[in-house]
Computed example of a mutant assay.
Amino acid sequence: MPVFRLDRSLQFPPVELSDKSGLLAVGGDLSLPRLLLAYKEGIFPWYGEDDPILWWSPEPRLVLFPDALHISKSLGKRLRKKDFSVTMDTDFAGVLEACSTIRTERGEETWLLPEMRRAYQKLHDAGYAHSVETRDREGQLCGGLYGVSLGRVFFGESMFARVSDASKVALVHLVQQLDAWGFDLIDCQVQTDHLISMGAVTMGRRRFLSILKESLKHPTLKGPWRPDLQPDGIHRKRA
């Protein structure tokens, strides 16, 4: 399959034309309208420091149904200990920065380059991107995640933890809150053992896009988000 080069026009090629790795297109920009269009079509940007902007639509897709969350016994115990406090949309920039720097501190390449962080900050300022912050008992940011919300779908982007289980606690808080708000799906993008252990499953692109299309018919819950639940540590499985 060819990889398409984007120009200034606000459009993407059909996602079915992605190559085997999921790469669909190269170029374009990270403007707010283009990012919103990309997510609505099941596409997301992901590239390294020496790369042009790359746009992806993987097959299969890793997703998590909110009511299929799996909480292990050890994580449930950690939740009940209340070692962390959890907030939403109180330090989006801090979560972005931490998701980027924790990788460079480990000697890994980060895709959260300055221009990418600026783009997601604009999405946050417009009410579409959200963060979950986990803080220790001293109030220090020690874990969290961020992503984009459209309709009844949350597109998870990245997470970090400086303390064991801090990112998992953030994810549990997010998933249970989204479940209470009636969200249909969390897009986890690509497969990881960590997310599979918490209930994520792979899904074909066609089914993913079908669910996304229906979910986008509902209004987007724009930010800032304020949680009205506390994680209960209950092990949930989809019926």
Rank of each mutant, 00 (worst) to 15 (best):
90 T>Y: 00
154 F>C: 11
160 F>N: 09
89 D>I: 03
50 D>S: 07
8 R>Y: 12
35 L>D: 13
132 V>F: 05
32 L>H: 03
143 G>P: 05
57 S>P: 11
62 L>Y: 09
37 L>A: 15
177 Q>S: 11
123 L>T: 00
148 V>I: 15
87 T>E: 01
86 V>S: 06
70 H>Q: 09
215 S>P: 12
99 C>M: 04
61 R>M: 11
3 V>W: 04
231 P>M: 14
162 R>T: 02
151 G>K: 11
153 V>L: 07
78 R>E: 15
188 C>M: 15
187 D>A: 07
55 W>D: 06
105 E>D: 14
115 E>G: 05
205 R>G: 13
9 S>T: 00
164 S>F: 02
220 T>P: 00
45 P>Q: 10
229 L>N: 05
223 G>V: 10
72 S>D: 13
34 R>H: 07
164 S>M: 05
162 R>S: 03
150 L>P: 04
235 H>D: 13
119 A>V: 07
141 L>R: 00
22 G>I: 10
191 Q>H: 15
92 F>K: 00
105 E>C: 09
44 F>A: 05
39 Y>W: 05
82 K>D: 03
87 T>I: 02
57 S>E: 08
96 L>K: 08
202 T>G: 12
171 L>R: 00
208 F>P: 01
118 R>C: 08
29 D>C: 09
115 E>W: 05
175 V>E: 02
7 D>G: 11
146 Y>H: 01
51 D>A: 11
164 S>Q: 05
40 K>F: 11
229 L>K: 08
19 D>L: 02
91 D>P: 00
7 D>T: 15
119 A>S: 10
92 F>G: 00
199 G>M: 03
150 L>H: 08
191 Q>I: 12
139 G>R: 05
18 S>Y: 06
146 Y>G: 02
49 E>K: 14
35 L>W: 15
212 L>I: 04
175 V>G: 01
176 Q>N: 11
150 L>C: 09
